[in-house]
């Protein structure tokens, strides 16, 4: 499991470099992202443009991260491939995540319009 993280405009930016988020890596992924989450950070932007497969355990890890961000938090999924978008729509996880074409447009959106309280 390979991720890169950085802080930008008060958000945690996570680049997932694997092509899948499945049961084999989901726990480690969650642990690493949670480990980078400083107190007070309400926005996580996750870049998944290389991901072509997410299973139920992977979805669970994403929801756990979203939960950690609390009521006003934002988990922004960036660069999702069409098939992955279908998966988020099928499971209606689009109700609790936000979607952006890439990290830059997500940051513009977040900075221009601060996370809802």
């Amino acid at each position: 499991m390979r991720i890169e993280t950085r802080s930008e405009a008060g958000s945690l930016v996570v680049l997932l470099r694997d092509d899948h988020l499945g049961a084999d890596v989901a726990a480690e992924f969650k642990r690493q992202v949670m480990g980078q989450l400083l107190v007070g950070v309400r926005v996580v932007l996750l870049e998944i443009s290389q991901v072509i497969f997410i299973d139920s355990t992977g979805l669970g890890a994403l929801v756990a991260i979203r939960k950690r961000l609390g009521d006003g938090g934002v988990l922004g999924i960036c660069g999702s491939q069409p098939l992955m978008l279908e998966l988020f729509q099928l499971t209606r996880l689009d109700k609790i995540f936000q979607f952006f074409p890439d990290i830059d447009s997500a940051l513009r959106h977040i900075v221009g319009e601060p996370a809802r309280r």
Binding site: S56, L59, G60, V63, Q89, L90, T91, R92, K95, I96
Partner: peptide, 12 residues
């Protein structure tokens, strides 16, 4: 048809 999984988020 689509819908949110059960046991993840409340209320739904």
């Amino acid at each position: 048809s689509s819908g949110f999984p059960v046991g993840l988020w409340h209320p739904m």
